[in-house]
Write a protein that binds this DNA or RNA. Structure first.
Lengths: 219, 219
DNA sequence: TGACACTGTCACCATACGGTGACAAATCTC
DNA sequence: GAGATTTGTCACCGTATGGTGACAGTGTCA
């Protein structure tokens, strides 16, 4: 006779596929935040959710599927609105270099305000898999929108400044600084915990952008 | 009676502590290069070296010790010489902004020429542990030396430009771009595989640096 | 009422991990 | 030559992982 013990089956309101899906998705965020991506795994997520890991396979086809669902659902990347500061029309009236500088500032702050995104960023670096494709796509989309909104497609600008290169450098620097901020305190002598350190970085980024534009005879 | 089987003991020339140490250290690099830091572990390293993992504990006190030994031994970070292009005296005769721009160029190329360093970089990001302290220290030391060699401590420069902030942004951007190059092909529309893409990035960095200096009335 | 699908729990598998104790073979020391 | 030390191999432990099959409680629909 095999075991016939009472298996603690959930009853009534707890039998809810959507709710379980949601709890699993949320658990991805919790695990990521508390243990980092190195602690990510079906066991950890299921344990965290108080559910069985088999549900991850049933509902998401596995961990990658779960991660994708999490990425889609989670507000992990700043929106265009956030980058322009809420008022796109007002933003549009600014000089081009101002727009770029301001957008960069907002971008930096937006990433800094998202610890989970920082975690994901460092994660995405190491493994370029199907899992992370969704994230990259979102990023590129927002990036293009921002570029256009900044008027960087303007022939005057595009002909005298290598805009993609400029954007790549800015984006790479911000990504890196934000991703590392939690791990180390000082980077090149800048205090990444102190708010003043971040202000210095923001100011320097603005200065670099404006200097390039000024040198190109633009504004 | 317990097993008395012939244990395949190495004989003669193969009984060599130093040689074994070396093989273990080299295996760290091999594992890192082929499996990435996610595959790092006593088992993987020992398997790779064709030795027993217990030696890692005996000779290095554990994996962190082995990693440290590897980091110390391995030429994982560009030297000052490499940054200035071999001839420090000639370097010193250049205008300050030229020095910074040229050093940045060399730095970028030096990191790109070290796939293992790129791997380590992405690794260090996620886990700030005792293991990685040694690496950070080397980096900071080279950084300060370079700064000094560029004449960035010159009062004229220091008073009108926030040098650490500038360096932090440049360093962060380069780190990030190099670390990601192997994982994704395009970053902000720049082709990170194509040599031309890197040239555009180098040029833009130079341009940003020079523009900031020009705007500050320096050279 | 009975058949059936769905949601969830549990036991179990093979595998890999980090780590340790016992032991054989070679070498060193006296 | 005898004994101690070093170098290396092996077997094994506890634990965790990803993954699967069996089964129980619940609801639905004919």
């Amino acid at each position: 006779m095999v075991a016939m013990k009472a298996q603690g089956m959930k009853s009534g309101a707890d039998r809810d596929r959507d709710a379980s899906r949601r709890r699993l998705i949320e658990s991805v965020g919790a695990v990521l935040a508390e243990e980092g991506f190195q602690g990510m795994g079906v066991n950890a997520v299921a344990r965290r959710a108080g559910l069985d890991k088999v549900l991850i396979y049933r509902y998401f086809g596995g961990l990658p599927g779960l991660i994708s669902a999490f990425a889609v659902e989670y507000d992990f990347w700043p929106s265009l609105d956030e980058l322009v500061g809420g008022d796109a029309d007002a933003f549009r009236t600014l000089p081009v270099s101002d727009r770029l500088a301001l957008g960069t500032r907002h971008f930096m702050r937006a990433i800094r305000a998202r610890p989970l995104t920082q975690e994901i960023l460092t994660w995405v670096f190491k493994e370029q898999s199907e899992t992370t494709k969704g994230l990259d796509e979102v990023r590129e989309r927002v990036g293009r929108g921002f570029l256009e909104l900044c008027g960087m497609n303007d022939p005057d600008v595009a002909s005298s400044i290598d805009v993609p290169a400029l954007l790549a450098i800015i984006g790479a620097a911000v990504n890196h600084l934000c991703a590392r901020a939690d791990k180390i305190r000082y980077f090149a002598g800048i205090d990444l915990v102190d708010g003043d350190g971040w202000k210095r970085l923001e100011d320097m980024l603005e200065r670099m952008i404006k200097a390039v534009f000024a040198e190109a005879g633009l504004s």
